[in-house]
Amino acid sequence: MVVQLLEQIGAGIGLGSVYALVALGFVLIYKATEVVNFATGALMMLGPFLFYSLVVFFHFPIWLGIAVSIVCMAMLGAGIDRFILRGLLGEPMLSIVLATLAVGIIIDCVAGIIWGFEPVAAPELIPNQAVRLVGITLSSAHTLTIVVLTLLIIMLFIFFRHTKIGIAMQATAQNQFSAYMMGINVGGVFSLSWAISAVICCIAGIVLIPISSLHVHMTHIGLMAFPAAILGGLSSIPGAVVGGLIIGLTENLASYYFPLIKDSLPFIVLILVLMIKPEGIFGIHERKKV
């Protein structure tokens, strides 16, 4: 019984890691540019499809396929920022939400036209076998997502703390005007954060392939990242990780113990948390001057 529970928790954390990654991508863009990126799910779906095409049709080795799709996604992310959202700086939030939704719809439909709306057989990323860890069994796919999330968090931590560009990004997130005055290329920082976010989404999508099948409706999985990001507090990177893990855990435990409400339980948890703490778990209460 306890072992079963632990195994469910492990699988939940595995799934939650993917949500956490996508939420990370979401929060990075929000922190840097205050744009609410509803195209996150679409970006997450596009990355693995690029990877799939490169490996299956162009016979790239897997590592090269991953690398090339990451580079393509980074360029796409920066391009979206430069050519669509840069002109919308300072517009009301509703406009920006709808603009990113439109971008997401376009990516979705183009992907659907190219690859079809049915699931496709993706190349095998890692052999499907069970991993035994201190008495509980986890599938290799879930282990992979947890490892990738941990590695990415460490890399992001080093990037933000110890590189010049990372610190410039932090400064921009704090106060754009001052950052501009200090000679930071604010536009470049915007594009860079979009690129990083797209890369993270791409990685999230690729490690998601063994868990869910590869199809255009993966975008809906990306939709779960918004509750995750909100749950943790929008402007907090640790919050995104914790929020993603919580959403993944609730979803997995609910599908095991309360299958009737498994689809809505993450949202119920979200609303309950927001009722108690409106700015999310790690969010900062922002005071507004009148």
């Binding site: 609410v36 939030m93 939400v97 909100i230 979200l270 609303i271 409106p278 700015e279």
Partner: peptide
């Protein structure tokens, strides 16, 4: 407010 409300 804003986005939190939208997601809620």
């Amino acid at each position: 407010k804003d986005l939190y409300l939208a997601i809620a």
